[in-house]
Design a binder for these strands. Structure first.
Lengths: 212, 212
DNA sequence: CCTACCGATCGGTAGG
DNA sequence: CCTACCGATCGGTAGG
């Protein structure tokens, strides 16, 4: 069950690498700086990964796993429909608001790899697409069960949700404006108010369907 | 009136530098690559600027000037109120939609310099803040003159407009999804519909107040 | 996991 | 505007 020593070192390196990549971007992650932080030689760090690219992809996988644990998995435990969609948005926003201090790899990576082909871009695109598709499914279920107006465009709704979260990162982390998380919440509330079904049959009853 | 030869060379270098910085980011702009593109030696390029940082700031100023020419100045010729605010958004969106191919320095720079202190960050923040403040003034005028509901939060409106534009860049340039510009337009239309004053006195009459 | 390297590239300088 | 450099740093390798 317990890790071998080599595995522990590798995990410790990845942990620091994720920290550095969050701050400086995946492309700013260098083996030299990583070795310095670990008090190891460059080749000592390098030996745990086949190449710098492999290291970057491992960092990305670690990030993706944590995102799923914190945002995706808890959300799909909520009742289908609006409660689940709101849980997805709220947990996502909560995570990004914490990342104002450290940086969000999905958002910085989108800019770093928008014109840089290769395996890292492909892995990153697949992860972000998967999250958007999960949001689209969540929105579509909220429409299908009658929480949101019939005829609502699920992808348009997700597009606007994504914009609200991108704006948090931009205004808070770059411009350092206050109150951006609150603005995103207000934007989402207005969005849901717009698309809410006035004669909802309340197919989703969070109290009733929660696992208790 | 005419440029000296040195000034022409300098302008030609800056033009190519802006092209490279749009694609690879300001931080990805290197003197070596720039010299290569210009068929000049590194030191030949270098001699036109005191340092790499000065070159980057000059590129930023060039970009800023073009943004003002294309987006800001034509918009403030429109009548105060909703017409002007709509012109600002539409011209801005038009420019970003063209930049899907080349990259937008305001947006990529926001990620590159969110945690990198120095004169480049300061210059970039000042420019983006200035544009947001211009948008806030435009929104506030639309509220004050009665085009938008009294009590509308101008900064909240601008926050959501900014998110719509950031999402164009993200979804079109990074994810390469189709139809994103149309989604931004629809999002803005819904936004204005929400905040529009139902009993507007039409203080702004574009036909009457246009300069003719 | 280390030392000791490699070639390439970085920003920048000297001297013309 | 050039050639010819500088020290620093990059990813990566050899050999142990």
């Amino acid at each position: 069950m317990s890790m071998r020593k080599g595995e522990m070192t590798r995990a410790a390196i990845l942990d620091v690498a994720l920290e550095l990549a969050s701050r400086d971007g995946l492309e700013g992650l260098t083996i030299g700086l990583l070795a310095d932080r670990m008090n190891m030689s460059k080749s000592g760090v390098f030996a745990h990964f086949g190449s710098r690219e492999d290291l970057q992809i491992e960092v990305l996988r670690l990030y993706h796993g944590r995102f799923e644990q914190e945002v995706f998995f808890p959300s799909i435990k909520e009742a289908r429909g609006l409660p689940r969609l709101e849980a997805m948005f709220n947990r996502w926003l909560k995570r990004v608001s914490v990342e104002i201090a450290s940086g969000c790899i999905y958002i910085s990576g989108a800019v770093e790899y928008d014109d840089r082909p290769g395996p890292i871009r492909e892995a990153l695109v697949a992860m972000v697409r998967a999250w958007q598709e999960a949001l689209v499914r969540g929105a579509q279920q909220a429409i299908d069960c009658g929480d949101l107006k019939p005829g609502t465009d699920a992808r348009q709704l997700v597009y606007e949700m994504y914009g609200l979260v991108l704006a948090v990162h931009h205004d808070a982390r770059f411009l350092r404006l206050p109150g951006t998380v609150e603005r995103a919440h207000r934007g989402f509330a207005r969005l849901i108010e717009d698309y809410r079904n006035p004669n909802s049959k309340q197919c989703s009853q969070p109290e009733a369907s929660a696992l208790k």
